[in-house]
Design a binder for these strands. Sequence first.
RNA 1: AGGCGGGUAGCUCAGCGGUAGAGCGCUGGCCUUACAAGCCGGAUGUCGCAGGUUCAAGCCCUGUCCCGCCUACCA
Length: 942
Amino acid sequence: MSDEQSDDKSELSKAYEPMDVEPKWYKFWLEHGVFRANLDPADQREPYAIALPPPNVTGSLHMGHALVVTLEDVLIRHKRMQGRNTLWQPGIDHAGIATQLVVERQLAREGTSRHDLGRAKFVERVWEWKAQSGGRIAEQMKILGASADWDRSLFTMDPPLQRAVREAFVRLYEEGLIYRATRLINWCTDCRTALSDVEVENEESNGELYEFAYRVVDADAADGATELVVATTRPETMLGDTAVAVHPDDPRYTHLHGRKLKHPFLDREIPIITDPILVDMAFGTGAVKVTPGHDFNDFATGKRHQLEEINILNLDGTLNEFCAQFQGLNIKQARSAVKKALAEAGLGRATKAHKLQLPRCTRSNTVVEPMISTQWFVNMKPLAEPALAAVREKRVEIIPAEWEKTYEHFMTNIQDWCISRQLWWGHQIPAFHCADCEYITVTREEQPSACEKCGQNNLTQDPDVLDTWFSSGLWPFSTLGWPDKTPALERFYPTSDMETGYDILFFWVARMMMMGIHFMGAPPFKRVLLHGMIVDETGDKMGKLKGNTLDPVDLVYGADFSAVVQKTMPDAPVAEALAKFKKAYPSSAQMGKGFSASGADALRFTLSSYSPQAKRIALSPARVDGYRKFCNKIYNATRFSLGYLEGESVDVDGRVPAPKLLVNRWILSRLATAVEASTAGIDAYRLDDGSGALYRFFWDEFCAWFVEMAKPVFSHGTSEEKAETRQVLAHTLEAALRALHPYAPFITEDLWQRIPRPASRPVSIALAPYPTAADGRADLGAERDMEALMAAISAARTVRSEHEIKPSAHVQLELRSTDAKLRSLLEEQARFIEFLVRTDGAPAVSAAGERPKGAVLSVAGNIDVLVHLRGLVEPQKEKERIERKLKKIQKDVEVLEKRLKNPSFSRSAPPEVVAEATTLKQTLEREAANLNESLQLVDELH
RNA sequence: AGGCGGGUAGCUCAGCGGUAGAGCGCUGGCCUUACAAGCCGGAUGUCGCAGGUUCAAGCCCUGUCCCGCCUACCA
């Protein structure tokens, strides 16, 4: 088609094509600087800021990102339209381990390694990689319409942020909150680095509980003290055992108190100790081997009993020189070798199946080993207390509020944070070791010239880098220029809302809270808005292996399913991958060969429509398709409107019209309600309510009733009526597009640019004011009258439809009511009834009368609706239908009657509830009477 | 083991004290001059189970069974 080119004045095609408009408008917004925050001191507008959770530099856009972008963009666009000075601060995280692993894999493919390259060259290489592929995710966010202030975008490794990180580290060190210590930490043997507690994930797996015996030194057969059987899930760690513990009150082992055990493989004697904390008499054999070097509980036990801590592992997880013949084996090999050796020595005992939790590295999925190591730590208690108080005192609100408990639990049980990582990619710790006096100089200087203690310049920087989340914790203020007092920091700190997934509540939100309060003296945001995790249609987590990942871009641009699965499971046969995919998304079966190009707006609307209360968001492609249709609806409604507005003189000055026609008064009243609901929904972080209110308003009220009723006005109305209706149409459409803009920015901009709008409006709808109730006109009388009218029309339509009257056939309609006001309403609105019901001339309105033969009677509140159907009805079918309906009504009436007869009901229930029940019962009874009458008449129909 | 959340129409979910809702699917009829990506209709629920509070209970309380997630662990 030639009419859908980019020329604004061109005729509109019949169907909406998002791909033809979306890229164009994004460019337009950038050109007009629509997304920029204003730092001009003269700008008096109230600020509103969100720090976008910086995606990993390694990442490409997934559904989780799409959700973040959508929710935050709705918030930002809404506030921007409300006249706030908005800042949506974007950026990218350097993602220490993740990025290092990616580049290392790349090197491995080239047959080299980071050790071959050396640290400096390797880091250079990572920067190169970042320059090539690090910007991709931002581009994908733009596809979704993200209105972030891209000019301010930052990378956590950028020099200003490096400076902020050094500053934070040095201050915490000077305050004694950062310290170095040797203790048991989580060690990933694959990443070869220490991990923090939150980077370890526990996964249940089936293991075994293995029992073996230690022989007692100087065994004395007389008192039975020959051996002690211990139970363990990790036999190989016996190489590091320095005690065996029993419960002091355990009668089975009293005779062994104070005795020693002989290590079967090592020249070591192991004391038997008593410890009521470690030992549960009922579990296993009641005797626990104690390995302080490789188990957190044993470590604590060792501290209580001054036991030796022996490290039996090399950094790569193989057994070290303390392990005699087992040296060099990896843990798995060592486990079976130790068991075999124990069995051969006659020490093996029972093996029982046992479920256990394996700690795994969140990055590499490798089993994490507790290991004694010297690391840097942050003392968390003093930081956590004020962060906890801020939430308790409601200075920071967490929404949904359930998460406050989780937050509280974490903050009160918080352990010190191990922040050093044995990696090369990241912020290197600003600590310098003196070769002469071993003193550690911690400094803001990039390269200090002398040791603070001895003054010599024999300094080497600590090789470790900081946990990625250390720099992320500073994000809300480091991005604004901290530690300098910049205008941006002055204006936008604290930020307003922090919106993110609940999965990083501990990783990120808690740390920002602590750092923000500590360094800035105020929490970094006023509200924490947490959304759930996106899962597939069956509720499973998305994962490459499961073949159930969805690429947001595929939904926006459209894609064949075969292409989709080839991308997620490149190594699997297409048929197999396709089967997995269809199983994960049953609704895709209805979608033919693939996803349509739904556009960013449809995807955004979909993502806005899920309740943020839900922990899991089961994304349905069919739902996206539904919102694609909604976009088409908006498009066509505008197309219809333009047909009546273009070329006419429509007075659109932004002032609310004061129409006379009922339908016009009504739609303005509904508009007021809808835009208020949208704002209320967004403000309460219930975007599902906000978007839903507009969806229903636009489709069910504006299109289904208002536009339909405008038709007879435009064809047969007086010129005043036409002018009035044009004005209301133009006004409502313009306001509706503005209301919809935060959810669906592209289509609303495109259409808004085409329709008549007040001269005072800015260059983009994104800068236009968000509509309020004042853009409509509340009119309760109009709402009440329209409800009666719509009910009557629907009742008549139902009768028509149930009797299978062709739409082309006109019927005679009679409307009766004992209410004089209703009668005059129906007379006034006769032409609309005629048009919408397709009646043969205007319906007859009367107070009461004989019921003519061959008429079907329906009830709409206080209006009886008679449709003359002589000769058009099949009596038998009609009879069955009526009887079915009667049964239902009678049941409802019974329930109501029972309730009304109960004396306590009328005594205790509020009067309006009683009145409601009474009228309802009357209506139902009237309907039942009518149906009974119809039943009698059916026989006479033919 | 503790904590949190959930079990409502075939599916995915809203509703959280006053006649059970939405989208998709199903179904009858329509190419009615904005939209067939549409229009006008229809059907579908012992609101996990058992007790209790209340005039009134998906909604509040107690117990119970499933399903998720989180935290901490019995070696």
